[in-house]
Computed example of a mutant assay.
Amino acid sequence: MADEINRAPAKVQSALLEAMQERQITIGDTTFKLEEPFLVMATQNPVEQEGTYPLPEAQLDRFLMHVLVDYPDADAEHSILRIVRHEQRAKQQSAPVAQSLVTQAQIFAARQEVLDLHMETVVENYIVELVMATRNPKAVDPELADWLEYGASPRGTIALDICARSHAYLQGKAFVTPDDVQAVAFDALRHRLVLSFEAEAAGVTTDDVIERLLSRVATV
């Protein structure tokens, strides 16, 4: 877990990049393989805040998803208060003991079940066409060509596939549908698209681009 990752210096970002891509870390002349299951979860502050820096595109592309977290509503704020209060009381009574809720074998089994979910060729084509539209936006909407500087890499295609499968799995489905692809498209693609200067000047966001793409690319 990397908290406030966009406050970290370049050396830390480089180390994270190796861990995320190669599943290993290097200390001096020695390289250590990271055990599975391994993943990196990170938070970042708005780039408008002082002391923050935009993450390199190569590093952003290696995150499977970019989930936007807004301020909590009133009910969630009450829950936060109660949770923190409970944790503080527990600390006063005794040291908390970490408990395992899921085993490594269960995680590996769930991964395999996700990969085994049936996906029709038309759904796979839909994923590919969405990503291709980010690279050649003029083919689906001339205005998109003015908004996008760079489209999603092949990692975007892979991310859409994995996330759509995972969404279907969590919904208890036996197969993946275009609805599953659309449900994860924003989180899987928003950090992989580079907007043009014109789009940024006009206040267009990557979510605006994805919404337009979903409305233009046919599902069948």
Rank of each mutant, 00 (worst) to 15 (best):
M1T: 09
A2Q: 05
I5G: 00
N6S: 04
P9V: 03
P9H: 02
S14Y: 04
A15G: 01
L16W: 01
Q24L: 02
Q24C: 01
I25W: 00
G28N: 04
G28F: 01
G28C: 04
D29Y: 06
T30P: 03
K33A: 05
E36C: 05
P37C: 05
L39S: 10
A42L: 08
T43D: 07
N45I: 06
E57V: 08
E57S: 08
A58R: 15
A58K: 14
D61L: 09
R62H: 09
R62K: 10
M65V: 14
L68Q: 12
A74D: 13
H78E: 09
H86M: 13
Q88N: 14
S94L: 14
S94A: 15
P96C: 08
V97P: 02
A98K: 15
A98E: 12
Q99P: 07
L101Y: 08
T103M: 06
Q106E: 13
Q106Y: 03
I107Y: 00
A109T: 08
R111C: 00
E120C: 01
E124G: 02
E124D: 04
N125L: 06
I127F: 01
V128T: 08
E129V: 03
E129T: 11
M132L: 15
M132G: 03
M132F: 12
A133S: 11
T134P: 09
N136W: 07
P137A: 00
K138G: 13
A139I: 05
A139P: 14
D141V: 06
A145K: 13
D146G: 11
W147S: 09
L148A: 04
P154I: 15
G156W: 08
G156C: 11
I158M: 10
A159C: 12
D161P: 04
D161N: 15
D161V: 14
C163I: 06
R165E: 01
R165K: 15
H167Q: 15
Y169K: 14
L170R: 14
F175A: 08
A183G: 13
V184C: 07
A188T: 07
H191S: 04
S196R: 10
E200K: 12
A202F: 06
T205G: 13
R212I: 08
L214K: 15
S215M: 12
A218S: 15
